[in-house]
Design a protein around this nucleic acid. Structure first.
Lengths: 228, 228
DNA sequence: CGTTCAGTTGAGTTGCTTCAACCCGTGTGG
DNA sequence: CCACACGGGTTGAAGCAACTCAACTGAACG
C-alpha cells in the first residue's frame, strides 16, 4: 500500500526543513501555493481579525498534509505558523495535485484525510456554538489524544501538547485565562493531571468523554483517517 | 467548459427529487454514502449534541454539491435536512467519485468548491470564536449574499433567506432571540431592512462589511468558487 | 540577579441565554 | 364565518458564563 508518508519519504524527503518555534511559514493572502507535509512537531493554521484576535482552525500533526489553497485556486487566506519546533516538507501545490492524480490510492487517502479535517471542524464548531467551556476543552483534549494515538490506545492516556494555554484557547474559542480555569477544574475533579509544559494525563477517559459529549469509538472513526 | 451543473443536468437530471420543507434527507451515522446536488432550494447540513442543540455546518445552495462522507469513507456523521422546499439529486458517492476521476476539469471544479467550503467554515469559526453577535450576523448575511449573487453584484442588494431566525442562529452560533435582537438593531441603524419571511435588503453594504470585519472583494475570492 | 514568559487566581463587568409574555398571520374545524 | 390553535417573530427581565483587568508566582535564561 502506497501511503502519503512512504511516497513523500522516498521522493521529497530531501526537501525537508527544520522550523523554529514561533516561525511563520505563510502569511494570510499570499499566492505561493504551497502544500505542507509535517514530519515532526506541529503546525497551526489560523485566521485573524483586523484587531488581532486569532482563531486556530487546524493543527497539522506529524504525518499529515495541509493545503491552504482558497476558492480561487491561487491565494491562501490562512496563516501557517509553528507553535513548537517542527520539521516540514513544503511542496508546490500543483506538483502535489499532479502526484495525487497519478496515484489513485494516494488520492483516496488524501480525500479521507480531507473528510477527517471537515469532521473535526464540524465537531469543534458544534461545541463552539453550543457548548460550555468545559465541554470545549474536554473535546479538544480528546480530539488531540485520538489523533496523536492514531487508533492505538495506550494504557496511560498521557500525551504532550506542545502549546501554550493561549494557543489552546485560540483553538477552542476561549481566552487563555478561562482555559487555565477550566483545566484546573478538570484536574481538581481528578479527570486529568497536568504536568510541566502542558503534559496532560487523562485519568478518567470516560468522564472526559462524557464532559465532551462524545462517544469515543464513534468519534475515532469520524475524525481519524483510517489507512484501511 | 464542462461544469458540474451541465454534466449533472445531462446525465442525472432524471433522478431529481422534490423535497418538502422540514424533510430529513439523511440522519447522523448512516452509511448510505450519498452525495447531494441541489437544483432548487437549500439544504442544511447539521450536527447535534445529545441534548438536542443543533449546529448548522453548511447550507447547500442551488448548483452546489455536498458529500457528507466521514473519515472512515463509509459513514456520514451529519444530518441533512431541508429548511425549505427543494429539488435535489441524490447520487451514489462512489459513482460520483468515479465521475470526478474521469473528468479532471470537474475534479478541479469540485476541489475549488471544497476549498471554498473550508474557507467559509474558517471565516465562520473565526467569528464564532472571537466576535460579537453583531459581527457574526453581519458576516453570515454577507456570506449568503455573495454566494447567492455569485459574483454578479446586483444593485439592490436584496435577497431572500428561506430560514427561520432559529435556523440562522444555529448557523451563527446564537439563540433565536438574540438573532432577532441583532437583526432589529441592524435595521434600526438603517443598515438593512427586513421584510416578510426573512426577505432581507442591505442598504449600506459597506457598513455591513465593516461590522462583519470583512473586505468584500477579498471575501468573494475566498469563499465563492470561481469557474474561471 | 534581573527580566521575561507562561500559568494561576481574584474581582468586577458584560453580552448572551433563558424564561416568559405577547403579537401577528395562517390554517382549520365546528 | 368565527373561534381557536399554531408557528415564528418581538420584547422585557433576570441570571450566569466567560471576558477583561490586574496582581502574583514560578521557571527559564542571559
Amino acid at each position: 500500500m502506497l501511503t502519503t508518508h512512504s511516497l513523500l519519504e522516498r521522493t521529497l524527503g530531501h526537501k525537508k526543513r527544520a522550523i523554529r518555534k514561533g516561525a511563520i511559514l505563510k502569511v494570510e493572502g499570499d499566492t505561493s501555493r504551497q502544500t505542507f507535509y509535517v514530519r515532526e512537531g506541529w503546525l497551526a493554521a489560523s485566521q485573524s481579525l483586523p484587531d488581532g484576535d486569532r482563531q486556530i482552525l487546524e493543527f497539522v500533526l506529524p504525518g499529515e498534509t495541509y493545503d491552504p489553497t482558497g476558492a480561487d485556486g491561487r491565494t491562501s487566506f490562512v496563516k501557517i505558523e509553528a507553535p513548537c519546533e517542527a520539521v516540514v516538507v513544503a511542496m508546490d501545490t500543483s506538483a502535489w495535485t499532479r502526484l495525487l492524480q497519478d496515484h489513485p490510492d494516494l488520492w483516496l487517502e488524501e480525500r479521507r484525510a480531507a473528510n477527517a479535517v471537515q469532521a473535526r471542524r464540524a465537531e469543534r464548531m458544534l461545541r463552539m456554538g453550543k457548548s460550555s467551556a468545559e465541554t470545549r476543552i474536554a473535546y479538544v483534549l480528546i480530539e488531540l489524544y485520538l489523533r496523536l494515538s492514531k487508533g492505538e490506545p495506550s494504557e496511560k492516556h498521557g500525551f504532550h501538547v506542545p502549546l501554550t494555554q493561549k494557543d489552546l484557547g485560540d483553538y477552542a474559542g476561549l481566552s487563555s485565562v478561562h482555559v487555565c480555569r477550566t483545566l484546573r477544574r478538570l484536574s481538581r475533579q481528578g479527570v486529568i493531571t497536568t504536568g510541566d509544559h502542558m503534559n496532560i494525563c487523562v485519568h478518567d477517559m470516560s468522564t472526559l468523554a462524557d464532559l465532551a459529549d462524545v462517544d469515543l469509538g464513534t468519534l475515532r472513526r469520524e475524525i481519524v483517517p483510517t489507512s484501511a
